[in-house]
């Protein structure tokens, strides 16, 4: 059960990011945060449980032939 509201979460995230914003800017972030969060949460689909990321790492590129 969530215990913090969007205002508290955004306040904390801005502090963690060391960002000092205007009251109006913060109000917009607070307004938008729930939708942003739910859009991100919607990507945690069950069918992706065993799917690899689309970006891959190739160590050989740092060693010219």
């Amino acid at each position: 059960m969530p215990t913090l509201d969007s205002e508290a979460i955004v306040t904390g995230l801005l502090a963690a990011a060391q960002l000092t914003v205007s009251p109006q800017e913060k109000a917009t972030f607070v307004k938008d945060y729930p939708l942003m969060r739910s859009n991100a949460d919607a990507l945690y689909l069950a069918e992706l449980e065993f799917v690899e990321p689309a970006v891959t790492f190739d160590p050989t590129v740092y060693y010219p032939a």
Binding site: P2, L4, A8, I9, G12, L13, A15, A16
Partner: peptide, 8 residues
């Protein structure tokens, strides 16, 4: 800040 991250 940790409380916020855990909540998220």
């Amino acid at each position: 800040k940790l409380a916020v991250v855990l909540e998220m």
